[in-house]
Design a protein around this nucleic acid. Structure first.
Length: 771
DNA sequence: AGGTACTTATAGAGT
DNA sequence: ATAAGTACCT
């Protein structure tokens, strides 16, 4: 019997197929397992695969779950509609495009496409794109609006717009509107548009809404704690007919508030569905007793959370390792060495090991050390492959063929390879096109128009280019992605250019383009296989082998950058990327203030708590061993910087930390120069790394008024906010508890580390930002 | 138009 | 350290 593999609470959750269900699932409590069996159970009870919609947060999670369900119930599970919000919605929007004023072949703009369009708009309006209206910032605000389902037209009247005005960004709304207009003209959507437009589609057309409400009879949402308002509303809309919606989440693992995730969704869920069946999975099957307890002791420090009792009956296991090294290089070497000894003992392979870090760039030093020791590794990174120039160029050609109106793609494709169309020509063409509301492509194919501004040579160049694009666009409906795509890339001449260079670098670039072509081939073949299996015609994603479908898919797929063809490798990834995964042995590196927690989290309590949850996520990835490392110094922006151990280390109950026996093996700097660089190291400590348990108190808390000199300038009232860490020349370090911004009588209650709570008159107190 | 040399800001996470 | 932007040259 299928459900025998579950414990009673898991089984109860899996069997509750009807109505609103909320599963609060602690780390390692068998959440995926429960969801998987729930789907299998639904199918057993007679639901059809295509009536089930499962929304996940990452593609990885979706793929993994699909595989597991296929393992349970067989290949019919392929027809379950399962994927990330973005990929599922992009497929629906492709089918329903005309209802919302789009063409089915719309482009999906990456963040960098969006930013470059914004920059262009901001420049055109003679606004300051370097400081005030930084594309990054502007896109962030637009994204925030969209995640709250505020359209560009509504934005003018929104609270967000008032905030902009307060921040001196009075043209934000205009920029948003212009951006929106251009995106529509270009038949393009950004990531947030996929959600916003899905919402608009359901809202606008009752017929469509009913269609999907009836189609998706059972809806499941994974990682519910990381959904934003838009996702909350849309899933409710889809479930509005039958009310069969099941959400799974853990507030302690909410780590995407920065991207608009709203923890209130979990809380509001039970208000929205009055008779919600709630299940709590608290038994941890993953980690050793020590790890579970240590992680609990950390998350306990957060104030805002739903109380949970995560427990395990796994053996206590090893204590958590803690090592401080002198430099980031040594930290990396240490990790590599430990990995060596883990695998040498024979009870684990590289696949069982992960190195986690807060920021992508930290992978560098780790990679170097691993390479040096010949340890195979794989960096799970979202960008690297598709951000490479040659890949972007090739993709621009493909994008332009699929969607002629894609101006970003036009600009990139027309100038790579170089064909004598430069800045000047493009500027003129841009102006011309905008004046008439045409796309660059349409302008460039309009001979009469061109003759008003360009000489014969330029016109010829433009039209030759457009001719190639046109020829392939005409074949979009007949040829599949691989067939068409590989021909376009050949015709682009990109590879020919590289071939002529004949350098190692150009060889690599060609290989990258070939890899892209390979991925088109496997896209086409994967789809083909599905077609052969069953022909119900009911599943939305079985038939589409077109280049347009390929382009939309890869825009939403994060890439795993392969540095190794081996199957056995150490995994390197950010903590964010590690969510949902587990490893026998986990290293968390860079456990340092200003890295983890990150510098920008210091300002608010909310962000600090999110960082702590992130640490909780990191710790709970480990099954049997966990090792934390930090360095005294590291290079940042090419400059040597000094670090203190992370405050999160203090959050761990010392009972679960290792004493330091294995650390004796490590040697610390002994040379004369090193001694000068690390004056705080006493000779006796040089024999072994500093045990952090003893170190943390003196390093972290010893900080008195003498540090004031290196503090920042005195804060203005407007720059203060509750939860902010501040420095007072007399009372030292503290946190703002409450704030009254009255101009003359403004006061702040500050909780000082060493002096307790004080009320300060802001007019006189010189508060500085503390780090 | 396009290449090269110099300057500057920069990186927090990812669909 | 490095990518991106600018100034200047061919």
């Amino acid at each position: 019997m299928l459900l025998d593999d579950l414990n009673s609470e898991q089984r109860a959750a899996a069997c509750q197929t009807e109505g609103a269900v909320m599963i609060v699932a602690g780390a390692g409590s068998g959440k995926t397992r429960t969801l998987t069996y729930r789907v299998a159970h639904l199918l057993e009870c007679g639901a059809k695969p295509w009536e089930i919609l499962v929304l996940t947060f990452t593609n990885k999670a979706a793929d993994e779950m699909k595989e597991r369900i296929i393992g349970l119930v067989g290949k019919s599970a392929r027809y379950i509609f399962m994927g990330t919000f973005h990929s599922v919605f992009s497929k629906i929007l492709r089918l329903e495009a005309e209802h919302i004023g789009y063409m089915p072949n719309y482009s999906i703009y990456s963040t960098s496409d969006s930013k470059s369009l914004l920059k262009k708009i901001i420049k055109e309006h003679d606004l300051d794109y370097e400081h005030l209206y930084k594309p990054d910032k502007v896109l962030g605000r637009i994204s925030k609006a969209k995640s709250q389902l505020i359209t560009s037209a509504e934005y003018y009247f929104s609270d967000l717009c008032k905030l902009d005005t307060a921040d001196g960004l009075k043209y934000m709304a205009d920029i948003y509107r212009e951006y929106d207009t251009r995106m529509k003209q270009g038949n393009a959507m950004d990531f947030d548009d996929l959600l916003l437009n899905m919402y608009l589609l359901l809202k606008k057309s009752e017929e469509t809404r009913m269609k999907y409400q009836q189609r998706f009879k059972y809806i499941m949402v994974d990682e519910y704690q990381d959904t934003n308002r838009a996702q909350y509303i849309i899933t409710n809309m889809l479930a509005a007919g039958h009310g069969n919606i099941c959400v799974v989440g853990d507030d302690a693992q909410s780590i995407y508030a920065f991207r608009g995730a709203d923890i209130n969704n979990i809380l509001d869920f039970r208000k929205h569905y009055e008779d919600t069946h709630t299940f709590k999975l608290e038994k941890n099957y993953r980690s050793s007793g020590n790890i579970v307890e240590a992680a609990n002791s950390v998350i306990d420090k957060n104030k805002r959370q739903i109380k949970k009792n995560v427990w395990t009956d796994n053996p206590e296991g090893e204590k958590i390792g803690l090592v401080r090294l002198s430099t980031d290089r040594e930290e990396a070497d240490f990790v590599a060495m430990r990995i060596r000894s883990l695998t040498a003992s024979g009870d684990c392979s590289l696949k069982d090991i992960a190195v986690l870090y807060r920021r992508n760039r930290q992978s560098r030093s780790i990679e170097e050390s691993l390479r040096l020791k010949n340890i195979k590794y794989l960096v799970m990174n979202n960008t690297s492959f598709y951000e490479r120039k040659e890949v972007k160029d090739a993709l621009a050609w493909l994008a332009l063929v699929v969607n002629n109106r894609d101006n970003q793609a036009f600009e990139r494709a027309v100038s790579s390879p170089k064909r004598g169309i430069g800045e000047t020509t493009l500027a003129k063409l841009n102006a011309m096109a905008r004046e008439r509301g045409l796309s660059l492509f349409d302008a460039a194919t309009n001979t009469e128009l061109l003759q008003t501004a360009f000489n014969y040579g330029t016109i010829k160049k433009l039209q030759d280019f457009c001719g190639i694009i046109c020829a392939y666009s005409a074949k979009c409906d007949e040829a599949d992605a691989f067939e068409l795509g590989s021909r376009i890339i050949e015709a682009s001449g990109l590879k020919d250019c590289l071939r002529m260079e004949k350098t190692q670098d150009s060889e690599d670039r060609i290989a990258n383009i070939d890899e892209l072509i390979d991925s088109m081939q496997s896209f086409v073949e994967a789809e083909r296989e599905e077609l052969v299996n069953e022909l119900t015609g009911e599943s939305l994603d079985t038939e589409d082998r077109s280049l347009a479908a390929f382009m939309q898919q890869i825009s939403l797929v994060s890439d795993t950058d392969s540095t190794s063809d081996e199957k056995d490798y150490v995994s390197l990834m950010t903590i964010h990327a590690s969510k949902g995964l587990e490893f026998k042995h986990v290293f968390i590196v860079g456990m340092e203030e200003n890295i983890f927690p990150s510098l920008s989290a210091l300002a608010s309590m909310q962000e600090m708590e999110e960082e702590r949850r992130l640490f909780y996520v990191a710790m709970t990835r480990a099954k049997s061993s966990l090792c934390l490392t930090c360095a005294c110094t590291r290079y940042e922006y090419g400059q040597l910087t000094f670090s203190e151990p992370s405050r999160f280390i203090r959050d761990i109950d010392p009972r679960f930390l290792a004493g330091g026996e294995e650390k004796k093996k490590r040697e610390l700097p002994k040379s004369e120069t090193d001694r000068k660089m690390f004056p705080w190291m006493k000779p006796s400590q040089e024999k072994k790394p500093l045990p952090l348990t003893s170190l943390k108190h003196n390093t972290l808390t010893k900080k008195t008024a003498e540090g004031a000199a290196d503090k920042g300038p005195v804060l203005a009232m407007a720059d203060m906010e509750e939860g902010m860490q501040v420095w007072h020349d007399r009372f030292g370090k503290g946190v703002i508890v409450s704030l009254n911004r009255d101009e003359k009588n403004g006061r702040a209650v500050v909780d000082f580390e060493q002096f307790g709570q004080k009320t300060l008159v802001l007019l006189f107190a010189k508060l500085r930002k503390s780090n």
